[in-house]
Design a protein around this nucleic acid. Structure first.
Lengths: 193, 193
DNA sequence: GGGCCCATGTAATTAGTTACATGATTAT
DNA sequence: ATAATCATGTAACTAATTACATGGGCCC
């Protein structure tokens, strides 16, 4: 799925500028899709060339014109077609889990810091999601509630797992050497001081 | 984190060919990292140039030589350094959730098919993960158990959510029009037939 | 005979990010 | 004064994927 389709999706709820679309990405799609200005502005320009959107330049005091894009009938058709065509992929790319996978190669302090950083990040995302959910709750479509609820469920599960397993993992890596095998008794004695 | 680092990671457990590394990616990292031959083979070639790995060509009957790579001391240092440097990111890219977010633009049959496809896919991943977990359980490092347990926890939570919410969402989209607003009473009567 | 497994590698292409370019307004 | 918000856009770069190229073995 490309940025063009997501832009059409945002515009299907009403006219917006590129800047506002970026904000919508950050607020609503943050958990499962991201895009930068460097992909959004060219996407909108191409959509305009193709006739999927029309653009009205709104003059601003001492600022670049705000270019407000509105979806056309053809754009709605293209959005619908793209959503029908798209295969339901779901891909996780996590350097966090790679780091944990190789926990035995890291000092325990680094490991603890990695887990704590991720915990804070997950909490941050969940709070901002919950906030926007409560702000807009009444106007959300069933699909939006479903997608946001999915994110909330995953974040809750992740935070719970990190909370439950953190201490255990840290104890285990302290008790094993760099090959993942148990340390000898003398090492354990030192570690247990 | 690049493919080179992950290759070093796989090779830190023993010598392997590029083909075998690809299999290891599929078996062990599938949930949180992926790479194709088109990135693995060049990564190994570059690691060899840099001295992070050494390569022994093993002649094969009627096949290309199998090139077995082994990590060097310098390679282990580079792996460790990369793991210390790497920031713990965790990014989800899900066309699946985008489709659900725009559920009101899809026919209910399509929506059901999307959810069911994803359910089957999640179950498939979980079963193959569980299998490899049970096969290797005793030899796994604490970090590997943690990372695999994380994936299992997420998949369980996802499947539970999909199972619980599927019917509800389908009923709701049947009862709302394409703007997400409730259909008029006459429509509901038809839908309820 | 069709399809998957084994086995390596390269080239073209894709789809994005980051950094650059510009600059006023408002809040801390 | 320093950072964040508003506002658009391009160019260089990155890091991967997909398709291509090659080909025997093995199972159903």
């Amino acid at each position: 799925m490309d940025v063009k389709t997501l832009c059409l999706g945002v515009l299907s709820t009403g006219p917006h500028s590129g800047y506002e679309i970026k904000k919508a990405f950050e607020e609503s799609f943050h958990y499962f899709f991201r895009a930068s200005f460097g992909s959004i502005y060219p996407a909108l320009a191409e959509l305009e060339r193709e006739g999927g959107v029309v653009c009205e330049a709104v003059a601003q005091a001492r600022r670049p014109d705000k270019k407000v894009y509105a979806i056309t009938r053809a754009g709605r058709d293209a959005l619908r077609a793209a959503l029908m065509r798209e295969e339901p992929r779901h891909v996780v790319r996590s350097e966090f889990l790679v780091l944990l996978y190789f926990a035995h190669l890291l000092p325990p302090e680094r490991l603890a810091a990695v887990i704590d950083t991720m915990t804070v990040e997950f909490e941050r995302i969940m709070h901002s999601d919950l906030e926007s959910y409560e702000r807009n709750h009444a106007e959300l479509t069933p699909g939006q509630r479903f997608a946001l609820g999915y994110g909330r469920t995953m974040l809750t599960a992740a935070l719970g797992y990190l909370h439950r397993q953190r201490g255990q993992l840290l104890r285990e890596v302290t008790a094993t050497d760099e090959t993942g095998r148990p340390r000898v008794a003398s090492d354990l004695a030192v570690a247990g001081d």
